[in-house]
Nucleic acid binder design. Sequence first.
DNA 1: GGGGCTTGAATTAGTCGTACCTAATGGGTT
DNA 2: AACCCATTAGGTACGACTAATTCAAGCCCC
Lengths: 233, 233
Amino acid sequence: MSTTGRGLHGQVLETLGPAITAGEYPPGSVLRTDELAQRFDVSRSVMREAVRVLESMHLVESRRRVGVTVRPKAEWNVYDPQVIRWRLAGADRPHQLRSLTVLRSAIEPVAAGLAAKHATADQCAELTECALGMVAHSRGHQLEGYLVHDVAFHRVVLNASGNEMFARLGDVVAEVLTGRTHHEIMFEDPDPAAVTLHVQVAEAVRAGDAVRAEHLTREITMGALQELDILAP
Amino acid sequence: MSTTGRGLHGQVLETLGPAITAGEYPPGSVLRTDELAQRFDVSRSVMREAVRVLESMHLVESRRRVGVTVRPKAEWNVYDPQVIRWRLAGADRPHQLRSLTVLRSAIEPVAAGLAAKHATADQCAELTECALGMVAHSRGHQLEGYLVHDVAFHRVVLNASGNEMFARLGDVVAEVLTGRTHHEIMFEDPDPAAVTLHVQVAEAVRAGDAVRAEHLTREITMGALQELDILAP
DNA sequence: GGGGCTTGAATTAGTCGTACCTAATGGGTT
DNA sequence: AACCCATTAGGTACGACTAATTCAAGCCCC
């Protein structure tokens, strides 16, 4: 997964990016290109390229005679996959996980509804396959195998929605699900009700029942919210 | 709005970015850094920084001995505000507008529901103010004034949701609404029903009625979908 | 003779260092 | 208070060198 940073500037980013998103340099902090170049033992050219990338993510702003200032958190491009990964690896991982789960709860039901309308035969088949895979790994502490099929399932739904914006959230959902299995407490087998819901979503999509697919997926994401104690009583 | 590209690399991006997103260089096309530097009459350093930014947006991939290859559309960071702006300025503006409107229809109702739970007194006041402003400009071809309050309204809702991912979509919604007023056919006064719905949403949020706020906002976004002939019969 | 492997030359991005330019900033002068 | 100038840190340009791939010619072994 972690691509070891292609090129020197990439390696710098993999240290500097997480540091900034972790709040190690609070908003308003001023960095100097030359100093950074020295610290990371790279040329100014390389450091400048790294700064340009951070700038395109709206993490920092570069101004003459001032330096590279860290922008307030509210201006960050929080949808940038790299920023998401950095934040998930940092201290506010729980907070980030909650935000993303809420996002899922908004997107995925609608995506499932659209998928019921637009999914191809291949996608339907793949979906059923994923659901069956989840069932097969739902008992006996086969969490890894379960996770693989769970991620694949949601990815297919998002792709089948036919909406490019939804499709691009596949990686985000994958990160959230993976994070839940690996870092959060999840020793027990997955909730049988959730497994059933996935199977039923696959059925609904195959049947072209958009309303049912949306409703069932909403139940799935509601369950995910409850796991994080985000209730709506 | 358009910041004329801070720095030379920014100016290059404002030409090269739209060109790529417009499909002028189809996916798989190979560009060479030196050639680009010549064409734009900038140094290789500047061009490299521009390429780095495009790379961070996953628009292109830079490889040795090959050059800078345009990545397939499915891999682009379509949530990057700059990419969104470039695409909205290009040929597939209608397609992009549809994708974003569908995204709105998923996000905004949920955001409104959360806003009803989390909105501060100030935000409630601001919301009512926006709604009243919309009413005041809803008749007599005051489309510009209406737009300003409409944009502000949705921005407040997204911010009041308390979810950072939702809040960051304020700019996107603004682009969509602005685009609808300026570029699409919209000579007539806004739909009175839509205006009423906004007022009611403000009321529901103020009353803390999450279910009602969500439902009303869903009606608003459904209306937006229908304007673009995205139906669910 | 053909398929697969090795080797080497060509190519293009990657890195570095230097030199100089530009523009904000802050302080000092009038 | 208005102005000017020295300082400072980023912005741009250029040139040299490095390193990683690709491609193809050549080779060996079937």
